[in-house]
């Protein structure tokens, strides 16, 4: 068996292969569902219904997709430039910390000013957090996979320390949680009485802005060039290290927005379970989207839908909701294979 390169795929092929990947995923997961003693068709139906079968389900899916769009964008931006940011989780939490520190009454400002200020501050913090690994990489050649991954644990323990110490809510009955942000710092709900909040709209705007940056701007061009061939990029005069720094700032900032949006839009305060692994799932989201910023919106909604739908399904069908993790992981694998097949043709003999 061997691989032969194919010419650039047509748009139809580009869209068809991810679809085939989803079908393959469902077939593979069916085996597990059968093993759990349930009917695959009814389970998939229940997952789909739980994800999008009602207004409530759909809004819940979009709410869950919001942080994933931010972290997915953060990963997509970084991976384009071959800056392997595995630390979106840490950047998310730092964004949450800044939101709580500045949003619990420290800044007596009206909403229209306070919310942009909080966003900017959260982004700055996340950006600075990733700048460290980026500097270590460009200056000393330290592998950013290691540094960003380990920072996740450092930051999580740091947040834990804060929540047991200075940020601990005195009225919180001893729970490790912060005070709630003030009303002016809260993102409005999109529909009265529902959980979906303005963060979703901000995430969509962020995706469009990132798409414009990658397609239309000098920075996007530089990031792609550096990602494809750093030596070639350096030769033609692209400031490779500077581009990696800018990429790190953008990526870290986007991930931190996930933390801001979860605190200001949904939870109201900071706890140690602010993120359900959104930083890591962002990697899956970005890969499923083939690092395309607009594709991140779709893949984040898809992944969120599986998690939300699986929760509903497990209550009805007695199949553990862990099936959602299996589905997401399997879809990543089938997607990687699909991407390979759009670029190469397999010859069996």
């Amino acid at each position: 068996m061997r691989l032969e390169p194919k010419p650039a795929p047509t748009l139809a092929v580009t869209l068809l292969f991810p679809l085939a990947a989803v079908v393959a995923t469902l077939l593979l997961v069916s085996l597990l569902v059968l093993a759990a003693g349930a009917s695959p068709l009814s389970v998939f139906y229940l997952v789909a219904r739980g994800a999008a079968g009602s207004q409530f389900a759909l809004l819940e899916t979009l709410t869950r997709a919001t942080p994933l769009i931010f972290t997915g964008l953060a990963v997509a931006v970084a991976f384009r430039a071959k800056l392997w940011n595995i630390g979106a989780e840490a950047q998310l939490y730092i964004g949450g910390v800044v939101t709580v520190v500045l949003g619990t009454g420290a800044l007596p400002l009206p909403s229209v000013i306070l919310i942009p200020v909080l966003m900017a501050a959260a982004m700055a913090a996340g950006a600075l957090l990733l700048l460290g690994p980026a500097v270590l990489k460009t200056r000393f050649g330290v592998d950013e996979v290691v540094t960003t991954l380990l920072l996740n644990f450092i930051v999580l323990l740091f947040v834990s320390m804060l929540l047991e110490g200075v940020l601990k809510d005195p009225m919180g009955l001893g729970w490790p949680q912060s005070q709630k942000v003030v009303a002016e710092a809260q993102l409005p709900r999109l529909i009265q009485g529902k959980r979906l909040h303005l963060g979703f709209v901000i995430a969509i705007i962020a995706a469009i802005v990132v798409w414009i940056i990658t397609k239309k701007t000098k920075l996007g061009y530089e990031m792609r060039a550096v990602g494809h061939n750093p030596e070639g990029a350096r030769f033609v005069g692209i400031p490779v290290n500077l581009v990696l720094m800018k990429t790190a700032l953008l990526s870290g900032g986007l991930a931190a927005l996930a933390g801001f949006s979860e605190v200001s839009g949904l939870k109201g305060n900071l706890t140690l379970d602010l993120s359900a692994g959104y930083g890591y799932t962002g990697i899956v989201v970005a890969m499923l989207a083939m690092l395309n910023p607009l594709g991140v919106i779709a893949s984040a909604i898809f992944v969120a839908g599986i998690f939300v739908g699986a929760d509903a399904m497990s209550r009805a069908a007695k199949v553990p909701s862990y099936i959602a993790d299996v589905m997401v992981a399997t879809s990543l694998l089938t997607m990687v294979v699909a991407i390979l097949l759009t670029r190469y043709r397999i010859r069996w003999r």
């Binding site: 792609r224 060039a225 030596e231 070639g232 030769f235």
Partner: peptide
Amino acid sequence: AVGTIGDMSVTENVIAERY
């Protein structure tokens, strides 16, 4: 390895020194 960025287009490579 140096003169071109193989996975980018002809256009993107041609403007590389003056983008």
